[in-house]
Design a binder for these strands. Structure first.
Lengths: 223, 223
DNA sequence: GTCTATAGACTGATAGAC
DNA sequence: GTCTATCAGTCTATAGAC
C-alpha cells in the first residue's frame, strides 16, 4: 500500500486516454507514459490490459447501478411498496443518461469513458454487461408491481425498448445532431429523460388497437 | 483479373471468421489460412485489415439501404406520393431486422457478420456508419410528408427511437432472452417489426398529455 | 511487497524476387 | 499477381533489484 499512487495513476491516465481516443488506439505504452510509471506495473497491478479496462468499467457501472436502485427504492417506499410505471422507468434510464449526457458532463473523464465503453464495446466490457441481467430483474419486478394486469412479455419488451432508446441516445449523439441539423438539443438531459420515459410509458400503458391514426397499430402486443 | 479468385476467397473466409469469432479474435493469418492464400495477398488486394472489414461492411449495408428505399418508394407511389407513418417506419426498420434476426438467418454468414458489426463497432465500421445520415434524411422527409402537422424535432426523435429499438434488439438478443427467461420470442421477426413500428408510431401520433395513467406523460414533446 | 528491466510470442504491414 | 522474408510495434510474462 506504500505506492498505491502507481495504481491510481494508471487508472486515472487510462480513463482519460481511453475516453479521448478509444480502446483501439491507446496502447499500454501510451498509458504508462502518461502516468509516468513502468510498463510492467500494469501487469503487476491489474494482470492484463483487459482487466484494467474491466476495472475501470466495473467501478463506474456499479456506481450507476447503485444510483438506479436508490431511486427505485425511494420511489417504491414513498408509494407504499409500489411506484408508478413512469417513475420506475425514470429510475432505470435517468442515472445513465444524466451520467453520460449534458453540457458540463462532456468534460468529465468518467462520463466520456462510459460513452466510449458504450460505443466500442470491447470483449472485457461485453463480458461484464452480460452479468447485468440480475440487476435488470429488479426493475422488471418493479414494473410488474406497477402494472399487475399487463402481460409479462410486454413488460420485458417495454424495459428492453426503454434501455434501447437511452443507450442509443448516448451512443449516437452525433448522428441525431447531424440529422436534425442541431435542432434536437442533446444538452438538455432532463428533456431527453422525459422523452424516453414518456415513449416507454405510453407503449406500456396503451392497449392494443387504440391509436387514432394508423390502421394496424398494435403497440407492444403485436401479432 | 486473372486471379480474382484470391480476392473473393479472402472476402468469403473473412466474413465467416469475423461472424464466428469477432473482429478482435481473428488475425489476418487466420483469414489467409482459411482462404488458402498468401498473407501478403490481403494487403495487395485491400490495402489493410481495416479496409478489408470496410469492404465487407459496405457491401452488406448498401444492400440493406437499397431494400429500405425500394420499400419506401413503393409505399409512397402506391399512396400517391405519401405513405402512412407506420409504413414509412416499417420500411426503415424492416429490412435491417429481417436481415439480422430470424431462425434460418442465424446461419447466414452475412447476417451474422452484420450482427457482429453492430455489436463490436470497430473504427472502420463506425466511419462508414457516420456517412449514413444522408440516407436517413430521405426517411425524415417521408415522415414529414406522412405527418405534416407534427413538430420537426419530434419527427427526428421518433426516427432516432425507432432505429434505437431495432438496433438494440439485434445487438442484445441474448440479454432480452435471458431476462425474459425465453418468453420473448426473438425468432418471430415479423412480430418484432410490428412491435417496433407500433411503439414508434404511437410515440409520433399521440398528442402530449393524453395518457390515461401517468400524471406527466408528455410523449415526444417533453418539457 | 513493490517495482524495474528485459525477453518472448504475436500482430499488421511491406520490400523485393519471381 | 503471387510469394518469401522481414520489419517495427504490440501485449504478456518473469527474473531480479529495491
Amino acid at each position: 500500500m506504500a505506492t498505491d499512487h502507481t495504481r491510481s495513476a494508471i487508472l486515472t491516465a487510462a480513463e482519460r486516454l481511453y475516453a479521448d481516443r478509444g480502446f483501439a488506439d491507446v496502447t499500454l505504452r501510451d498509458i504508462v507514459a502518461a502516468a509516468d510509471v513502468n510498463l510492467a506495473a500494469v501487469n503487476y497491478h491489474f494482470g492484463s490490459k483487459d482487466e484494467l479496462i474491466a476495472e475501470l468499467f466495473v467501478t463506474r457501472s456499479l456506481a450507476t447501478n447503485r444510483e438506479r436502485l436508490n431511486e427505485l427504492k425511494a420511489a417504491e417506499e414513498a408509494g407504499g411498496g409500489r411506484a408508478e410505471i413512469d417513475v420506475v422507468l425514470r429510475a432505470l434510464v435517468g442515472p445513465t443518461l444524466r451520467g453520460c449526457l449534458g453540457p458540463d458532463k462532456q468534460r468529465s473523464d468518467a462520463a466520456r469513458f462510459m460513452i466510449r465503453a458504450s460505443i466500442e464495446s470491447v470483449p472485457p466490457i461485453r463480458k461484464i454487461k452480460n452479468r447485468e441481467v440480475d440487476h435488470l430483474r429488479k426493475f422488471a419486478a418493479a414494473m410488474k408491481r406497477a402494472l399487475p394486469g399487463r402481460d409479462e412479455v410486454d413488460l420485458y419488451w417495454g424495459l428492453h425498448f426503454a434501455l434501447a432508446m437511452a443507450h442509443q441516445t448516448i451512443r449516437d449523439t452525433e448522428r441525431l445532431t447531424k440529422l436534425s441539423d442541431g435542432k434536437c438539443d442533446l444538452n438538455d438531459v432532463n428533456a431527453i429523460i422525459d422523452r424516453v420515459v414518456a415513449v416507454a410509458t405510453l407503449a406500456l400503458t396503451t392497449n392494443p388497437g387504440r391509436s387514432k391514426t394508423g390502421p394496424r397499430v398494435n403497440v407492444l402486443a403485436a401479432r
